[in-house]
C-alpha cells in the first residue's frame, strides 16, 4: 500500500514537471520586468526537496534538471542538472525535518534555490570577464525578487499530491501504516 503511494506520488510529480515547463514557456518567458522574467523550475525543486526525503528529492531534482536542460538549455549543457542537484543537496542537508513546512518556509527555501540556481551563471560570467560580476549579481537579484512570489502557485499545484500520497508518512520516509502493521 505504501509502495503504491510512493509510485503514484512520483508519477504525479513527473506529470507536474511538463505542466510547469509549459507554463514557463507560454506565460512567463514573454513577461519581463526590469528586463528579466520569473523562473518556476527552481521553486518546484525547492518545494519537492523540502517535502520529500533527501534521497528521493535528489533523484527528482536530477531528473527535472535534465529535462530542463533539454527543454530550455542554459549557459552550459548541464546547467540545470548541476544547479538543481546542488539545490536539493543543500536543502536536504539544511532544512529541518521534524515538521511539515508550510508556504512561508517553502518560500524561504525557494529563495535559497533561486540564489543557488544563479550561482553557476555568476561564476561563469566572472570567469569570462570580471567586470560583468556586478551586472550578474544585479540580474540574479532581479530574478530572485520576481520569482519568489510565484512560490504560492507552485505550492498550490504540488500540495494536493503531497496531501493525497504523503498522508500517513513521516518526513523520515517511514510509513505509519507500515510501522503499525
Amino acid at each position: 500500500m505504501a509502495q503504491g503511494r510512493v509510485v503514484y506520488r512520483r508519477l504525479f510529480y513527473a506529470a507536474a514537471a511538463p505542466v510547469l515547463l509549459m507554463a514557463q514557456d507560454l506565460f512567463l518567458n514573454g513577461s519581463t520586468l526590469w528586463g528579466v522574467h520569473p523562473l518556476l523550475p527552481p521553486l518546484a525543486v525547492a518545494t519537492v526537496a523540502v517535502w520529500q526525503r533527501r534521497q528521493e528529492s535528489l533523484c527528482a531534482s536530477a531528473a527535472f534538471g535534465l529535462l530542463c536542460d533539454l527543454w530550455m538549455p542554459g549557459l552550459i549543457p548541464c546547467y540545470f542538472f548541476l544547479s538543481f542537484t546542488l539545490t536539493a543537496f543543500f536543502i536536504g542537508a539544511l532544512a529541518p525535518r521534524r515538521t511539515a513546512p508550510g508556504l512561508f518556509r517553502v518560500t524561504l527555501w525557494g529563495a535559497a534555490a533561486l540564489a543557488i540556481n544563479s550561482l553557476p551563471a555568476v561564476l561563469i560570467f566572472a570567469c569570462r570577464d570580471r567586470g560583468t560580476v556586478p551586472a550578474a549579481l544585479v540580474l540574479a537579484g532581479k530574478e530572485l525578487i520576481l520569482s519568489v512570489p510565484l512560490t504560492a502557485p507552485v505550492y498550490v499545484l504540488l500540495l494536493p499530491i503531497r496531501r493525497r500520497f504523503d498522508r500517513g508518512m513521516s518526513l523520515s520516509g517511514v510509513s505509519h501504516e507500515a510501522t503499525s502493521a
Binding site: 518567458n29 530550455m72 549557459l75 546547467y79 550578474a136 540580474l139 532581479k142
Partner: peptide, 9 residues
C-alpha cells in the same frame, strides 16, 4: 515558437 527560458541568454 519559444523564447529563451534563461535570463542569462
Amino acid at each position: 515558437t519559444a523564447r529563451s527560458g534563461s535570463n542569462w541568454a
